[in-house]
Design a protein around this nucleic acid. Structure first.
Lengths: 118, 118
DNA sequence: ACACCATAGTGTGTGAGGCACAGTGTTGTC
DNA sequence: GACAACACTGTGCCTCACACACTATGGTGT
């Protein structure tokens, strides 16, 4: 019954997963392990969302990847690129801006029609 | 050249616009004015994004609307519904959770491989 | 009087992203 | 030798953001 609820929650989480990945992949890591890290850290993400996201971020140049075939199991290791670090920084700034915008929403919420200058 | 940059920024902003609308429309308001309010408050939003969003939120029961035809210009006034207030509260909680998750990301970012228990 | 911009909204189409589902192959365990 | 956990790829559907096109009215300048 509350599908829209979940949808909006998901929308709120969207961009944060990107930021989390860029941050966590400053030290190399592969998809499956990252998935568990994200979950532990409060960014619950579907595998079917994360894998395409990683490929997309690589295609856009924010991550670089490399297959590790030395270990028992072949794993694709991703690392945040120079450009990715830049994006992470910008996203962090935007996050701070949004956080303060949201905080100020509540303060002024009791002052309804104080804006009549156009 | 930086289209992906903007895309990711947009993604980060996504859910916050919903929260802002639900909060601001506790006192009735119409689309065009809301657009200016959002911009002033740091939630820059395209008109072609906001109008569909308002209709969507109404269809989902988070807003109710009413045409005002008494004034010079016909305007569609929206108000946050009971259900909308509930959603806003949940989104606020999620926002706080995400904020602390992101904050803790940076603290531990210098400890690379401290997670080897599955 | 007429052009023109700001206001206020609707409708259509496209492209990107989330995620369900399906599939491939490997490693370890009982 | 079956079966779950691991690790990843590929396809398809649905929703959302946004560009574009459109309708219609009020106010301002000339």
């Amino acid at each position: 019954m509350s599908e829209p609820f979940d949808t909006h929650l998901q929308e709120l989480r969207r961009g944060t997963v990107v930021l989390a990945c860029l941050q966590l992949l400053r030290t190399p890591g592969y998809g499956y392990a990252l998935l568990e890290q994200l979950e532990r850290r409060g960014f619950a993400t579907d595998a079917n969302t994360l894998y395409p996201l990683l490929r997309r971020l690589e295609k856009q140049g924010f991550l670089t990847s490399e297959w590790n075939t030395e270990d028992s199991r072949p794993r694709k290791f991703y690392v945040t690129s120079e450009q990715g670090l830049g994006l992470a920084e910008i996203l962090r700034q935007e996050w701070r801006a949004l956080a303060s915008a949201i905080a100020s929403l509540h303060e002024t919420s009791t002052g309804p029609s104080t804006d009549e200058e156009h």
